[in-house]
Structure formats: C-alpha cells, structure tokens
Amino acid sequence: MIPKTKSLVLSMGLAALLAGCAHPSSSKEQDHGIANGKMESMLHSRSDSPVHTIVMPHDEPVFPPGSGRDEFVTACVVCHSPRYITMQPRFSRTTWLSEVKKMKDVYGAHISDEQVLKITDYLVSINGQTGTGQGPKGTYGE
C-alpha cells in the first residue's frame, strides 16, 4: 500500500483539504440563511420544513504515489475532486500543462512555476500520453 512517507504527506494534503471544506463563504451564509454543516436535520428534512438541507456524499479517489503527487494533493484537491483528472481522456503533456497553468494564472491556485511543472509531470504520468503529442489547449468554463 502507500509507503509511510506518502501517508504523512497525504495527511498534510487532507489538512489543506479540510480548510477548503470549511470555507464556503461565511458572509454569504449569513446573508442568505445558508447553514452549512448542520447535521441534525439533514437526513430527514421534511418537505414542509422551512429549512431544506442535504448532505453531499464524499468519497474521492486517493491517487497513486508518484513524483508530483504531493503538490497535486495539496494544491489541486483543495478546490475540486481528483475526478476532474480521472474523467479526462489521456491528454498530451501540452494539454495538461495548459490546464495546470490555467489553474494558477486564471483561478489563482497557490502554486509556483516549479510546482506547475511537477503537477504536470504527475498528471501526465497517471493520465497522459507518452511522447510529445500536441493536444488542444484547454479553455475556460468547460
């Protein structure tokens, strides 16, 4: 299974993730009556109740060891599920690099240029094409 060092890093990644979970904008919650995180009425909120609540399922894939995995877990999974990677076809390095750069430059992911390259390496290793294909560059909002 996962070597000890990887487990440790995984825990760190999860800690970052937890911060992400707690995030959903608290000012907005007050403004609009969202009460994120109330467990009690969640499973049985009745249709005539003024408070309508759901519990989102949470069961995300854990990624295999590899160079760049640590950066991937801490930087990417804060904002979205790893399924954003696994649902894609095997893209070329060009395409993956473009996607990772977009996360940094457009969405403000907290990663250095060096980490961009490491994450790209990792994505290519788990879901990329070998060789130097010139796949399409990603765009926005897709």
């Binding site: 999860l14 993730l17 937890l18 707690a22 399922p57 949470h58 069961d59 995300e60 854990v62």
Partner: peptide, 21 residues
C-alpha cells in the same frame, strides 16, 4: 489505491456522509 485509503477524517469534518458511491 484509490479504493483503499483514508479520506475518513475528511468525511467527518466536512459533514458529508461516506455513501454508496
């Protein structure tokens, strides 16, 4: 690997149930 490990702490803290998925 994906089926195996953790994410349990995460699940609890996020108030999301580990489900049928």
């Amino acid at each position: 690997l994906m089926g195996a490990t953790s994410v349990v702490a995460l699940t609890a803290s996020c108030n999301r149930n580990s489900s049928v998925m």
